[in-house]
């Protein structure tokens, strides 16, 4: 067993995911306390050029598994490679991003190694040299501190944006350890037949992370273009209140509310929606709610985390520009 902290560095379309850099930044701090080092595990095909960047953020070593069979993620291939690596090196901590991939892979690996795993953590730390984490339960209505026992390696998946990224030090180069990949194609019990890209297209309302929604205050169908533009910038989906749908400005399938779709995105931006209870019943579980409405008495402000009392036709174009700037910066 080593005091090594491992980070599974997920790469997508030739880019390391930001959450991996966040975890490496945090792991570096932890490793200092622990007196160990930080290793990243990088898998895929032709991902070698990405390895160096991991060092900039604090990875001392990068285990690089570069192979054709790892080009697209499959549970069986990735879990086999990762499990063998962990068995061989016995790191004390393995962190994954709490992404779709990370949440698919980590339980599989943890089970094979009989290791403890905490999902979707918002904080990681050390207690007496052992991993402890904080994670939400009940959709964030409670937080729990978790400790681990009974396994050599403890694991956690960490929620994106939960940990700060430290500035990269481009002088740091990681030691790159190439991993032999021995996978018999028959071991992979799933085959990807097709990938249907929805990027560019909008996610379905019920699955959208961000929803920009318009109501009666939009005044007419033509004005929804303004919301479309805002949504484009945010990668959001456009929804509508019953009033807007009834007026024929948007399709019934776009309706959010009691009799429409029940949604719970991370961010819900309600524009010109007064917030009748039938609408609230369909979106009040959204993590953050923004309301833009010129009527300060509108019930939507009771539910909103942030509100702007103003003419939406003036606010939205400015807001869209601001988001554009932000996106351009990051």
């Amino acid at each position: 067993m080593s005091n090594s902290i491992w980070v599974f560095a997920e790469a997508k379309e030739g880019k390391i995911k930001k959450v991996a850099l966040e975890m490496i930044s945090e792991a570096k701090k932890m490793a200092e306390k622990l007196g160990g080092d930080v290793s990243a595990v990088l898998m895929g095909q032709n991902v070698e050029p990405l390895a160096e960047q991991l060092g900039h953020y604090g990875a001392n070593k990068v285990y690089l598994a570069d192979h054709e069979v790892l080009k697209d993620y499959t549970t069986d291939a990735y879990s086999k490679v990762l499990t063998e690596l962990i068995k061989e090196n016995e790191p004390s901590i393995v962190l994954y991003g709490a992404t779709i991939l990370g949440k698919d892979l980590s339980p599989r690996v943890a089970a094979r190694l009989e290791a403890g795993l905490a999902t979707d953590c918002t904080g990681v730390g050390l207690d007496d040299g052992k991993l402890t984490v904080t994670r939400p339960m009940f959709a964030g209505k409670a937080y729990t501190d978790i400790s681990f026992s009974g396994s050599k390696t403890n694991m956690a998946s960490v929620r994106p944006n939960a940990l700060p990224v430290t500035p990269p030090d481009e002088s740091k180069k990681p030691e790159i350890i190439k991993v032999d990949v021995n996978i018999n194609p028959d071991d992979i019990r799933t085959t990807i037949q097709e990938f249907v890209k929805t990027a560019g297209e909008r996610a379905d309302l019920t699955e959208a992370e961000i929803i920009v929604s318009g109501g009666r205050g939009m005044k007419g169908p033509e004005n929804f273009q303004m919301l479309e533009e805002l949504a484009d910038v945010l990668g959001a989906t456009v929804g509508a209140s019953r009033a807007a749908v009834d007026a024929g400005w948007k399709a019934v399938s776009d309706q959010v509310g009691q009799t429409g779709k029940v949604v719970s995105p991370n961010l819900y931006i309600a524009c010109g929606i007064s917030g009748a209870i039938q609408h609230l019943a369909g979106m009040s579980t959204s993590k953050f709610i923004v309301a833009i409405n010129k009527d300060s008495d509108a019930p939507i402000f009771q539910k909103a985390d942030y509100g702007i009392v103003d003419d939406l036709f003036k606010v939205i174009p400015v807001l869209t520009e601001e988001f554009k700037k932000l996106k351009a910066d990051s």
Binding site: Q258, T259, A281
Partner: peptide
């Protein structure tokens, strides 16, 4: 179809909105 949620809401939270 929109009625199913109303029934569920009444069953689980004793009000039609499911609050």
């Amino acid at each position: 179809p929109e009625i199913q949620a109303v029934f569920r809401n009444m069953e689980n939270n004793s009000n039609p909105w499911g609050i």
